[in-house]
């Protein structure tokens, strides 16, 4: 498995910024592309390492995720849940209109 020799251009930056929901000013796209290319070319070092047959390590805990009983242990704190809402109405979070 060899990584695609990724060259990040401003079109790619636009695409990932869109995925990340971060709006970038036009003049920041090129410097960010350069930063990402520098970081990615450094990361290419990993391709030297033979990882055939190596199991990916996602968690170091060594234990499986514990299960708890499916019962209510908390709740009835609507005021607390909404306390930091930028905008709320009648006990709901308010967002810009999504359906015409």
């Amino acid at each position: 498995m060899s990584a695609d020799k990724a060259i990040v251009d401003t079109a790619t930056v636009e695409k990932i910024a869109r995925l990340a929901r971060i709006r970038l000013a036009e003049e920041r796209k090129e410097p960010i592309a350069q930063d990402l290319n520098r970081i990615l070319s450094w990361i290419e070092e990993l391709n030297e390492v033979d990882t055939d047959g190596v199991e990916p390590l996602a968690s170091v805990t060594g234990h499986s995720l514990p299960l708890r009983k499916d019962e209510i242990t908390d709740g009835d704190v609507q005021g607390k849940v909404l306390a930091n809402a930028p905008e709320e109405a009648s006990g709901f979070f308010v967002v810009p209109k999504v359906v015409e």
């Binding site: 498995m1 990993l46 990882t51 190596v54 199991e55 990916p56 390590l57 996602a58």
Partner: peptide
């Protein structure tokens, strides 16, 4: 890119 970067990194993490 998931396999080339993220999965690869997790494998080297195991090593």
């Amino acid at each position: 890119y998931y396999d080339a970067y993220y999965l690869k990194a997790q494998k080297v993490r195991r090593l």
